[in-house]
């Protein structure tokens, strides 16, 4: 019944984000949220409810108007740009609706990029990137560039890239939003498998209730507030 506190990887307290000068938009309204290591979470809710805004806050891509976010016990709202970059590089993996692969690099080089940014040796980065591309089933596409790959393949490369640094938290903003049902099913299965394999925390925004139902926990956001936070039964 009671969660082990030491297992909490993300702790959000009283988090608000207000946009706009003149007409204020309260994108996030005093959110409190605890997320545990290894959880596979779906964030759902109507369009414009604040899902992406919340992900950007957790991903240290933006700063809140008020409130605190602790990642692994560290208050990210008080960090310098350098510290934020390092944290993003080492602890966070991002998957967006659009793959955002670098068009001037091939699949392998794209997956190597977070490692190179970290300062990993090229030869080691190459090996690790190849392992992950194998994991997502693209070992025979490593020299392809994005325009030579399908939408689903590009998204798999993006997933490999998000995971290559072994981040403790992977966030996805409608990661299958551009794919058809069949492809998006297989991507979800892939993410789920990776989540089990590496015990990484996954937070995925989706408006696909069918997908959400396959996760451990569904957080519903309406008007910048958490309207529902329910655990799916794992042993069902």
């Amino acid at each position: 019944m009671f969660d082990d506190v030491s297992d909490i990887i993300i702790q959000i307290r009283n988090l608000s984000k207000i946009y706009g000068d003149g007409v204020e938009i309260k994108a996030l309204d005093a959110i409190d949220l605890d997320i545990k290591r290894g959880e596979f979470i779906a964030i759902v809710g109507p369009s414009g409810s604040g899902k992406s805004t919340l992900l950007h806050q957790i991903g240290i891509l933006d700063t809140p108007t008020s409130g605190t976010i602790l990642l692994k016990g560290i208050d990210i709202t008080k960090m310098s740009d350098k510290q934020r970059s390092k944290m993003r590089n080492e602890e966070l993996g991002f998957i967006f609706q659009y793959h955002h692969l670098l068009p001037d690099f091939n699949a392998l080089e794209n997956v190597m990029m977070p490692l190179l940014i970290k300062g990993t040796k090229r030869s080691k980065a190459k090996k690790m990137a190849f392992e992950l591309l194998k994991e997502v089933g693209l070992e025979d596409r490593i020299n392809h560039r994005t325009h030579q790959l399908s939408g689903g393949q590009n998204q798999r490369v993006a997933i490999a890239r998000a995971l290559v640094n072994k981040p403790s938290i992977v966030i996805g903003d409608e990661p299958t939003g551009n794919l058809d049902t069949k492809k998006s099913d297989s991507i979800y299965e892939l993410l789920r498998r990776l989540n089990k394999e590496y015990n990484q925390t996954f937070i995925l925004v989706t408006h696909d209730e069918r997908m959400a139902a396959k996760t451990d926990r569904i957080i519903r956001i309406v008007d910048g507030k958490i309207a529902e936070d329910s655990k799916n039964r794992k042993d069902f």
Binding site: R88, F94, Y98, L102, I117
Partner: peptide, 16 residues
């Protein structure tokens, strides 16, 4: 622009 955003998300500092 998008690429720069993604590089930042991957942990590239503003200085880099």
């Amino acid at each position: 622009v998008g690429e720069i955003g993604m590089l930042m998300a991957m942990g590239t500092s503003r200085r880099s």
